[in-house]
Every structure is written in structure tokens, then in C-alpha cells.
């Protein structure tokens, strides 16, 4: 289905400010970086998590451990797909026991990706708590899951797609809404 850009929601500056605010909020709520870890959900949650970690390092002067989570094996819709998605490596090179885990993803929509991520985390260890940071919340939840830190709330219709583009992956920073071209 051909998609066309309808509108730009955030430009590069907007993303930077949103991430800075999220980083501050994370530090405020967890009262510092003790036991704090960031886990980015593949794919675009990863560069977002890296940037947030970078901002925290600027603010507090400490490095927060960073992990990468591939949730493909935990998806609930594999049997419905016509193809099997590529699995990439999960890389969490530290224990999760007793940690405060901040899961980072680019967009939260139905909530199923986060549900899969929670299952994966539970298999990796027993965190003290898990919180969720997303750049965009576009509504239409199908599960009782809510983010703790949100960059921007963007009401959308079901046909629309929210596309987050990151410099590291797509060559530029912006968030756009796309809709199917008639």
C-alpha cells in the first residue's frame, strides 16, 4: 500500500527537546541513577535509549547501563504473518535483578510490543520495577498498558501510520504521520 506523508509532528529540534525533558523526568522520578538501566526495544527504541543515556550522562555525569531487546520471539501475532520477521540479537550484558528498568520505544500504539517486551524481560531476570518511555503515544491501546514518560501525544486514526525517523537508521531526525494515498 502506498503511503504519503500527511504532516510532520516533530522535527529534529522537537525530538531533542522531548528527549531532554524525558531524561529529566526519569532522573526526577527515580531520584538519581542508582540501579537505573535503559533498555531499547529494537529497532528505533535503541538509538532513542542511547540518546537518553547520553543526556543523562551530561546531566548527572554518570553512565547508565544500556541494553538492547529484540522482542520478535515473544510476539503474539507470528502465526498471522505471511512471513517470519528477521530476528536480531538481544544484548543485555548485565543482570536485571533488582534494577529499575526503563524500557524505551519510539511509538506506542496497541501496546502489544510492550507486552512482548515485558515477557522477554521477565525471562531475563527479576527487575525491581519497569517503566516505559516512548517518543510518541498515538492512542488505540488494545491492552491495559500505559507509558510513564511520553515525548508527544499524537491522536491518530487507525489507517494512519506514525513514522519515527532517526539519524542513525534513516539518515534524518523527524516524526511524520503517513496515510494511504487514494
Amino acid at each position: 500500500m502506498e503511503m504519503q506523508e500527511k504532516a510532520q509532528i516533530l522535527d529534529a529540534e522537537g525530538i531533542r527537546r522531548a528527549l531532554t525533558r524525558i531524561a529529566h523526568e526519569i532522573l526526577e522520578r527515580s531520584k538519581g541513577t542508582r540501579q537505573l538501566v535503559l533498555i531499547g526495544i529494537r529497532r528505533r527504541g535503541v538509538p532513542l535509549a542511547q540518546r537518553i543515556a547520553g543526556i543523562i550522562r551530561e546531566i548527572e555525569g554518570t553512565s547508565v547501563p544500556l541494553g538492547i531487546l529484540d522482542i520478535t520471539l515473544y510476539r503474539d501475532d507470528l502465526s498471522k504473518l505471511a512471513y517470519n520477521p528477521v530476528i536480531r540479537k538481544t544484548d543485555v550484558p548485565f543482570s536485571l535483578n533488582d534494577k529499575k528498568v526503563i524500557l524505551v520505544d519510539d511509538v506506542i500504539f496497541t501496546g502489544r510490543t510492550v507486552r512482548a517486551a515485558l515477557d522477554a524481560l521477565m525471562d531475563l531476570g527479576r527487575p525491581q520495577l519497569v517503566q516505559l518511555a516512548v517518543l510518541v503515544d498515538r492512542g488505540h491501546r488494545e491492552l491495559p498498558i500505559r507509558p510513564d514518560f511520553v515525548g508527544k501525544n499524537v491522536p491518530t486514526s487507525h489507517r494512519e501510520v506514525v513514522a519515527v525517523q532517526m539519524l542513525e537508521i534513516d539518515g534524518k531526525d523527524q516524526v511524520v504521520i503517513k496515510e494511504p494515498s487514494e
Binding site: 520471539l73 515473544y74 538481544t90 544484548d91
Partner: peptide, 17 residues
């Protein structure tokens, strides 16, 4: 097989796929 090998390294060697 590479990410699968990572699963083998975990304590809980199971995924629900």
C-alpha cells in the same frame, strides 16, 4: 541461529515463540 544461541545462554532457556 545467532540470537538463538543467546537464548541458550540465559538462565531461563525458553521463549514462547
Amino acid at each position: 541461529a545467532e540470537p538463538m544461541k543467546e537464548v541458550l545462554g540465559r538462565e531461563i532457556k525458553k521463549v514462547p515463540t
